[in-house]
Simulated assay, not measured.
Amino acid sequence: MLKCAFQYQQDNCLLNIELEMQQSLLGIVGASGSGKSTLLKNIVGLLKPTQGYIQFNQHILVDTRQNIQVPMHQRKIALIFQQALLFPHLNVKQNLCYAEKMLAASERKFQFDDIVALLELKSLLQRKAHQLSGGEAQRVSIGRALLSSPNLLLLDEPLTGLDSKLKQQILPFLKRMKDELDVPMIYVTHHKEELEYLEAETLQLSQGQLRPR
């Protein structure tokens, strides 16, 4: 599925990553500033490894020796950020549809109505972004990412900034995604209890390297 062996160095950040992911959900836990977001940005293509390679489903995304760097928009990988980045001038339905309108019908993995039902978004479809709670906005963000039909979904501390009640509302949706959707996910956080709830196999990112917990 996902296989990486790369180094990334920038300012005070140094990662030496060796990773082979075969499971549907991989959790990565680490302290703030340990490089979790940097790791995901290298995989999705926002950053470029200093040296090494990243391979997904036998396709080489990065190989510094061969000077291969597949552009981010061609990788079919979606990244969910800590804060929902919705288009403020669009309502929820338009935000969701924005992702799938870029795809031919034959390329769509999921139906709009199925994702709306999975994330319980039907009652929100006509609302604008500023009318949503933090938890609602993050659910819309996740739905939009899924409707882009990714082959891999990366979640960068998606519950950061939400209070305990909102976290308890979103975690069951993430669990349903793991159980019901055929999309592998990497979930990074510094709250190991989130990964325990999701029953994720977990690695620890410490001193720039991934280790078993």
Rank of each mutant, 00 (worst) to 15 (best):
L79F: 06
V92L: 11
Y197S: 11
A31K: 14
G35A: 10
F6P: 07
K122Y: 04
E136L: 03
K93C: 11
L96F: 03
K122Q: 15
K122L: 07
I170N: 05
I60M: 14
A145C: 07
Q209L: 04
S24G: 10
G30T: 05
Q94H: 11
I142R: 08
Q168A: 09
L125W: 13
A129V: 02
V44L: 09
M102W: 08
L47D: 01
D182E: 14
E196I: 04
K122F: 06
Y98R: 11
P212T: 05
I60W: 13
L2D: 08
R139V: 05
L124V: 04
R144P: 00
G27T: 01
G208L: 04
Q111T: 06
R65H: 15
N91T: 06
V183D: 09
F112C: 04
L153A: 01
L86R: 03
K175D: 14
L26R: 03
P184A: 07
M177Q: 07
V183M: 07
Q131E: 15
Q9H: 11
M21H: 08
S24M: 09
S149L: 06
S123A: 08
A117N: 15
Q126I: 01
M177G: 03
P184T: 06
K178G: 08
H73F: 07
V140A: 05
L40S: 04
Q207V: 02
I28W: 08
V92M: 11
S206W: 09
V92S: 02
L15Q: 00
I54N: 00
P150L: 01
Q209P: 00
H190W: 11
K175L: 12
S34V: 02
G35D: 09
I54Q: 00
G35P: 12
E199L: 06
A104N: 15
Q126Y: 09
K122N: 12
M72I: 04
L203C: 07
L90S: 12
I43A: 03
G30D: 06
I68D: 15
L85A: 14
S149H: 12
L210M: 14
C13V: 06
Y53L: 13
N57S: 13
S32L: 05
A84N: 14
V92P: 01
H73I: 02
I115R: 00
L132Y: 05
P158D: 14
E196G: 01
L47E: 15
